[in-house]
Design a protein around this nucleic acid. Sequence first.
DNA 1: TCAACGAGTCTGTAAATATC
DNA 2: GATATTTACAGACTCGTTGA
Length: 347
Amino acid sequence: MDEKSPFQEKKIPVSDLYEALQHNEKLDKIPDTIETNRIYRVALASNTKDAYKFDKYAWKNTRRTPYPKNNPEFIKIYYSCVNADKKKDGRCVKHVFISKVNDLDVLVCYFGNFYIAEKRPHGNCRLENSHVFHHTPASTIAQIDELVSKMPGAAAYKTLVATNGDVEAPRNAAQCQYRRQKYLKNQKITCDEIKNLILLSYELNGFYKLLQLQPETSIVLMHDQMKQQFASNIEWNHIIWSDAAHFEVLNRKNRTCVRRLRSEADQRFNFVPNVQGGEGSISVWGCMAGGARGPLVIYSGKVDGRAYVKIIEELLPSFIENAFDSSNKNWMFMHDNAPPHRSKYVE
DNA sequence: TCAACGAGTCTGTAAATATC
DNA sequence: GATATTTACAGACTCGTTGA
């Protein structure tokens, strides 16, 4: 096959697939010696459904699609070989056609040159006689999931082996441990879930509830009481909020990775702009109050206590003068407790 | 016993290419 | 030019290995 046009001979008419389904020899697995451009018919069993995947070459799955598109009779799966560089290589491919009528009747066809294909065990199969041909029954999976919600994976494995025997037992202890990990992970509360709970608490008037999130974890929501307490003591419009932020446009501290071809090594888009002398970034400080926006101060370098006081002394009085009535002496200035904000010089 | 990590599978989306 | 087919990429998921 011409390496530069590997797709010319890949097309298999649907009629040929039907022909193969009716007349080709039924195989229980892919033969050791593979011929290209030949349709292998693999008759599978319910517990060896994946047998078509495994031969002595390493493959990368790309996509599965209905085939043909307008009147799908098969599921077509594309595989590309893995070359010596461990990269997917389209010069040697494997196409699998799974009949929609009977998904245990599978057609497999190989194209291209096997000399570029890496020979190694496929998928999670690390040993010759690994588990890959054996699928844990769904009923066993359900039993595992139920047990690992109450006990560690190893204990669940021992329990199921003792009760189910070899046939319906889990694959191994690691399988139970994996499902135990999954269970524990699902039990963790995400930030979004906590936010949703807080939002929910605000939607319900007078909400006061003990939420039992997990056997070991509870959350008490009592926002109304807190709100009333704050509302009675603080007038929020009298508070001046302030903060600073640093923006790195150039000379960023984090490393930038570029994926490129060797031939593109000297191309301009592979380089990150840099500025000598430590330029390329700015820091800004700003403040605001209810209904008033303060000045935005742009500065460079580090801000210590002295610099911080200088900024405040220069800008804060005029902002207070504009934001509040002259008679209002109840305003409060709020910072975020950053180290320069609480330095001895500031105090 | 569990968390972290790596490797492999599968699939949604989009782009490229082939075919009609 | 429209449609079908193929390829590429990224993310979710699964599961084995390793070390604390």
